[in-house]
Structures are given as C-alpha cells and as structure tokens.
Write a protein that binds this DNA or RNA. Structure first.
Lengths: 335, 335
DNA sequence: GTGAAAGCGCTAACAA
DNA sequence: TTGTTAGCGCTTTCAC
C-alpha cells in the first residue's frame, strides 16, 4: 500500500501538501493538486483505514453478534444489517455466539477494545435462560451503544428492533379458528427463547378467547428427533386439524407428517409456520407462513445504531421499533 | 476506554514504563509492575486494537466475501471460518456480494485499504459467468493473500479449498444404478456455477458408463418457480425412478413432488440431494444427502490463509485442499 | 529501573 | 501556496 509519505517524496512536496491536495483543500495550488492526484491515481492510493480510525477515534465498523448463522431468519437479518451498514460507509465484524453466554461475553469484550463503534446483537439462548445482562450494561456504560433485535433483554436500556410475536400467533390462530378448525395445536422448538414464549402466549390467548377449543402444545427440545416427536404427537392426538408452528422447521415437518399420515392439506388440516419464502417451498402444498421481514429488521437495527453513534448524547431516550409480521397464505390453509 | 497515558499519569510514571510493566518486561521493578497491573485491572484496561494495528501493520482481521448468506452451505462455511479465525486471534469482516461482480469488486477494494490482512471468498455467480479475475489478481499483487473456497477461479494463483463435486455426483449416480434404477434424472438450479457444472459432469459420466440409461437433465433458472418446473418435469418424463439433485432445495422439492404424485419413496423412486442435515428433515422419508462438510471447509480455508499471512514469501507454492463429501443414506434411497 | 523519543499513517492548527 | 508540528495509542530502542 502506498502512503502519503511515499507520494510526498516522489513529488518533492510535504506530506501535508499531499494530504490537503487529495482532500480538495482550497489552500493548495491548482497545478499541485493535479500532479498529486495523478500520482495518487497511478499508484492507486487509498487512505489507510487504520490510521484514520486512530486519528478520528472512530472505526466505522459495527460489531454484529449472531446466535446462530444457520438460522435462516438470523442470516437474513445479517444480510439486512450488512447492506444498510455498507450504504452508510460502515463495515461489519461478525461474531457467532453459537447460543453460548460465554462466547457472547467474549465477543463483546474482544471487540470493545476499539475494534468497533457499536454493536447489533440478538441475545443467545443461554443468556436468555440464565437471564444475564451485566455484560450488556457494562458495554453500554463503556461508551459502546448496543442495538438488540428479535431476542432482546428487556431490562437493558438500549434501542431494540422486535417482531410482534404475540400478535402474529394470535392472529394466525384466530385465522384457523375462523376456518372452523376444532383442534388447533401449537408446536415449538424454541420454548426457552423470549420470542418463543410470546408466540405461545399469542396462541393461548386466541384459543382461550375461542372458548370451544382447548390448547394443545408440543414442546420439542433441541436434542430431540423432531420428526419422531411430531409423528408421535399426531398419533397421540388424532383429531388435530390445525397447527401453528413457532419456528421454521416444525411447520414444514408437521405438514409433511400430516401428508404422510394420509391427511389432505388443507382439506383435513391447516398448517401455519414461521418460515422464510424458500423454506415454504419445502412442502406440497407450500406452507402458509408468518413472515418476519428479516431484512427490514436488519436494516432498522443498523439505522438505529448509526443514528445513536452519531448523537452520542441522551442514552435515556431509547427506541423500540416493532416490525410487523405478515401472514402469507399459501396452500396449507383454506382460502 | 482507558489509555496508557491515563494510567501513567495517575501512577506518576512514564507511558513506556506502564507499557513495559503490562507486557511483563524484565526491565521494570517488581513493585512497579504490581502497581501498574492493579490499576490496569481496576480500569479494565485493554490495549487499543487500532493503535496496535497501525504499529504492527497487521489488523488480525480477515475479510470474508460470501455470495449469499441465505445459502445454508455458505452460511455454515462462514461459521467454520469464524470459529477457526477466532481460535487464532483473528476477527472476520463479512461482506455479502449477493452474487454480484460489482459488489464483489467493491468489497475487495474497500477492505484493501488496510482493513484486513487477507481474504477468504467464494466467487460470485456473475463473476463466474463473466469469467472475470482481474480484481482477484490485483488484490493478490497488492500484497493481500486470498483463499478461495467452493466456487473458485482456477486461473488465479492462490490457495483453494474445494469439494470433490465430480466424484460426489458420480458416486451418487452409481449408487442409484446399483439400485437398478432405470431412469435417473439430474436436477440443478446452479448451472452457471463451476460446481454445478462439475456435478453435472459427474452424473453424466456415471450414466454413460452404465450404458443402458440415457441422461435426463432438468436445469432450473433462479427466476423459475421450482415446484412448478419439477412437477412439469415429472409429468413429462413419467418413468423417472431416480433423482440426483445438484443443490439443496431441488432434492427436497423433487422428493415431496414424487410423494405428491403418489409414488412410494424409496420403493418407486430414489432421491439424493446436496443438503445440510437440517434440510434433510424437510421430507418424509428424510432425504439421502451428499454432505459437503461445510464447517470443515471453512476451517481449512481459515487455516490456509493464516498460514499464508504468516509466511508472506513464496506466492508460487499455492495449495488446493480437497474436502471429500460423504453420502449420508437416509430414507430416500434403498438400503 | 525508568524515561524520552521515534515512528506506524493520517489530519489539522499554525507558521512561514 | 506550502511546510512544520503535534497528536491519535502503542511499542521499542536508546539514554540516563
């Protein structure tokens, strides 16, 4: 990489002259500016990012901590963050907490050494179970703003971007009730997550309001064989004619299992799941899905953080942005 | 963030004394070391990363350019890279090229300003179609090593980590031939990618060797409705009793479509696809899959790059590591 | 045993 | 119009 020093030497001018010329300073003579720019072009000069960061005490870099990159929703949020960040001249450093509290803490610690100007993160499962929030508070007190998305720690004062999880399942369940379904079950493999709990509550409320149906819930653990669990669940509860799935895979598996049992979809049973568009293709008929607009969530998170990093003051006016889900009706529900 | 300067001032010693004390230099008196370390601990001092980077001319950061983060395989490779990089004290800056040549070039350019010490990337689709490689060469000539994985540009001299795509489909096809399948089709939505072509060739070779079967290929475009295309394909070619799918979704869709047509799997038809474990759950029976060991690919790529960054010399001894696929038999093929 | 000074690459206030 | 200097935070050589 060429430096100002090298350009200056070759041009027989001082370093600051070169610097000013390249930054279109009024001070420098037209002729000099031209000479400097030509040589810079020739050598493909780029101001050294590290030096700029040191000088400005700003890295123009955002630390993103994702619990699980294989989760399509989270991956898509990351996509949204990256895009929006780039648009504003920011790069992102990605850490994957792998749902581990320790790794989450480490990542926060590690990047809080001047590597980034702020964080965007979704709380790890272990962190939510243990309900730890000190490391978040410490980071924020250390001067690095955090924006949380999807799985958030409510007791931490920071900007947040969340989904209307409660309403989403509430409405979806209502939808099946309207279809005259009599045995609507709820299947989830994310019981430990804040969002999983909210989704269950939304389902429960709709069921209770209905009056004539009683709730029927299947909670799957990470280690379980999802297919087996769901199969057994269907066998045990024979009359199921509706399923609300809280996560991306349970819906697909439930639908395919129903078909495997000889049920007609959506004649005999309706299924609604949280899933991305591409996942909804993994069944025939396609899965009716609650879409979370992951990209938009990522974009919102990035915007909030960038705003916060610009106006460093007022840490007390934290915002919570709710990105509404939408129900995309495909073939697994009645029209 | 506390700096050495502040610690020095508070302790009434010089900056260099503090620095040495914290780095366990022999020069400094025991008592002083103790005082310094205590205060540093108290203030949670961390050496500023940016300053270190500038000093050492090394950022300990790897630039990763991924074509599409929603692709499970690529996401998992990213996971492997991140893990291995972290293990060696490196962070990763992630850019998503979104299969675009322009974005790929930009990312390379942007990070080549001192932000990273090297790159790991998988070539964007557009780049492969247009067969552009100048930007890679320029980067390498500029002193930043590149490691390519999966989709590689063969004409660029750099370390590579690839999958034995040809052998994978060759063996998988052979497998179906052994099952006495008579009409084995090949379905792909990645025709434009180097890996897609290799996979098709592997299939073709096995089919030709067999002699009695003639090749039957369905190429799906990005914009097509995959389900429709595959349905039509099955209708048109009624006798299909075997499918090799080149990508993650085609296998699942083909399997579910076959079931939808009333075929018994694997009695009437066998299906093999490239897919991750979690995707293989999206059908009943589970999809028999060619597993690419994505995490391992990522780890290998990171190792190669870190090695290369340490021994800067010898750019001519480039290595290509082949990570072998394995065929995981699930219910969609005969035992 | 401790400190001063230079230098990594850059910008900007100030001097000439 | 151009150059000198200081400083961002750190390490390291060389004086003291």
């Amino acid at each position: 990489m060429v430096t100002l020093k090298q350009l200056a030497k070759e041009l027989n001018v001082s370093i600051s002259t070169v610097s000013k010329a390249l930054n279109n300073s009024e001070e420098i003579g037209e002729e000099t500016v031209k000479r400097v720019k030509e040589l810079a072009e020739l050598y493909n000069y780029k101001p050294n990012k590290v030096a700029l960061s040191l000088k400005n005490n700003k890295t123009k870099t955002i630390g993103v901590i994702i619990p699980n990159i294989l989760n399509r929703f989270l991956a898509k949020v990351l996509f949204g963050i990256e895009r929006e960040a780039n648009k504003h001249g920011y790069n992102i450093i990605t850490c994957i907490s792998n749902e581990s509290l320790v790794k989450e803490k480490e990542s926060l610690q590690l990047l809080a050494n001047g590597s980034v100007d702020g964080f965007i993160l979704s709380v790890a499962e272990e962190t939510q179970i243990k309900n730890e929030i000190e490391h978040f508070k410490k980071t924020i007190n250390g001067g690095l703003p955090i924006v949380m998305f999807d799985r958030v720690a409510h007791d931490v004062m920071c900007d947040k971007v969340i989904v209307d999880d409660f309403d989403a399942t509430y409405n979806a369940t209502k939808n099946l009730v309207k279809e005259k379904r009599k045995h609507v079950a709820f299947i989830s493999n994310i019981n430990d997550l804040s969002v999983g709990k909210l989704r269950e509550r939304g389902y429960n409320k709709a069921i209770l309001e209905c009056g004539t149906i009683s709730p029927l819930v299947l909670k799957i653990k990470k280690k379980d064989d999802h297919q087996k669990k769901i199969k057994a669940f269907f066998k045990k509860n024979s009359g199921i004619d509706g399923v609300i799935a809280a996560d991306s895979s349970s819906g697909i598996i439930a639908l395919n299992t129903a078909i495997n049992f000889g049920l007609k979809v959506p004649k005999d049973i309706s299924v609604i799941g949280f899933a991305s568009k591409s996942d909804s293709f993994h069944s025939l008929p396609k899965l009716t899905t609650i879409r979370q607009h992951a990209k938009e969530i990522g974009e919102n998170a990035a915007q909030l953080l960038i705003l916060r990093m610009q106006n460093t003051g007022k840490p007390d006016d934290v915002k919570t942005k709710i990105v509404k889900t939408s129900l995309v009706k495909n073939g697994s529900t009645l029209k």
